[in-house]
């Protein structure tokens, strides 16, 4: 068997694929953050909590109402999106135009409250969510056993990521969004309802997080604290990609998944730190991130 740095080629291919799968999650989550920061200049620390809400909603709706996976895939993000719009309308709007630190603290507080309430009700051991029947099992790729569900995660995440990028960068709606945040008064003058656009953008950003949450429900343990673990990593991904760069967030998410996967093979103890190491190096060489525009 051919070896690379003492690791069999087969193991390495498996790790690359695993890296891409985890990268798909990072991409989805950092994309939402990048949309919210890029268009609204809000540092959304509630993003991890919204991801958690998506997963929790999926499990709770199944347990209480028997809502199946496919319905949850649309319904959970929709509900979380509505919650996001409410947070924007009742809370974030009041501090619009203030320093970034206010939105950071406010959303962090919202996240802690949601996490605390759900911990009191459901505990932290994790809720059970059975794998949907059609995804049970997997296929032997020769170098690894690929569960069908993980393959679906890559496909679903990439489709949603590309769709979002396309909508914001290439469509008229996206142009309105970008223009509205550049110069909201001018856009108001053209008869565009900018406050509504802002609410919907925030709602859409957190929908992406909730969508990632639904994808995570069958494979990770669903707990009220699941979002707090991933939030910081995802912020690092956004910083590496360049704050606010939509395409940058997607590509960096997948890249960082691969970097982390390879670290887990060659030196596992460093795997939780490697993304931050990359962040430090990138900030030293390109302070605006890999895909950020020059300030």
């Amino acid at each position: 068997m051919s070896m690379i740095f003492g690791v069999p080629m087969a193991v390495l291919s498996g790790q690359l694929l695993i890296g891409i799968i985890n990268g798909a999650f990072y991409a989805l989550l950092s994309l939402g953050l990048a949309v919210i920061f890029g268009l609204l200049k809000i540092i959304n620390f509630a993003h991890g909590a919204m991801y958690m809400l998506g997963a929790m909603a999926t499990v709770i709706m199944f347990d209480t109402l028997g809502v199946n996976y496919w319905v949850a895939l649309f319904l959970a993000p929709l509900l979380v999106g509505i919650a996001g719009v409410l947070v924007e309308y009742f809370l974030l709007r009041r501090i619009a135009g203030q320093d970034h630190i206010y939105s950071l603290l406010l959303t962090f507080g919202v996240a802690l409250i949601m996490q605390g309430i759900l911990t009191n009700i459901y505990g932290v051991s994790g809720l059970r969510y059975a794998m949907p029947d059609m995804f049970k099992g997997g296929v032997n790729l020769g170098f690894m056993f690929m569960p069908y569900y993980r393959a679906w995660v890559i496909v679903a995440a990439l489709v949603v990521c590309f769709g979002t990028w396309f909508m914001i960068e290439k469509t008229k709606l996206g142009a309105y969004l970008r223009a509205g945040t550049e110069d909201s008064q001018l856009m108001q003058g053209f008869g565009i309802n900018v406050p509504l656009l802002v609410s919907l953008t925030y709602g859409f950003g957190v929908m992406l997080a909730a969508f990632a949450g639904v994808l995570a429900a069958p494979i990770y343990s669903v707990t009220p604290v699941m979002g707090s673990h991933i939030l910081i990593v995802v912020f690092a991904v956004v910083v590496i990609g360049g704050m606010g760069s939509i395409g940058g967030a997607i590509i960096t998410g997948i890249l960082m998944g691969i970097v982390e996967g390879l670290t887990k093979t060659f030196y596992p103890p460093a795997s939780s730190a490697v993304i931050f190491l990359v962040m430090v190096i990138v900030l030293m060489i390109r302070p605006n991130g890999l895909f950020g525009k020059e300030a």
Binding site: V11, G14, Q15, I18, G19, I21, N22, M144, R150, Y220, M226, H229, I230, G261, K264, T265, P268, S271
Partner: peptide
């Protein structure tokens, strides 16, 4: 949070 890489090894 994700053990897939370690389980694979």
């Amino acid at each position: 949070p994700d053990f897939s890489s370690f389980i694979l090894q």
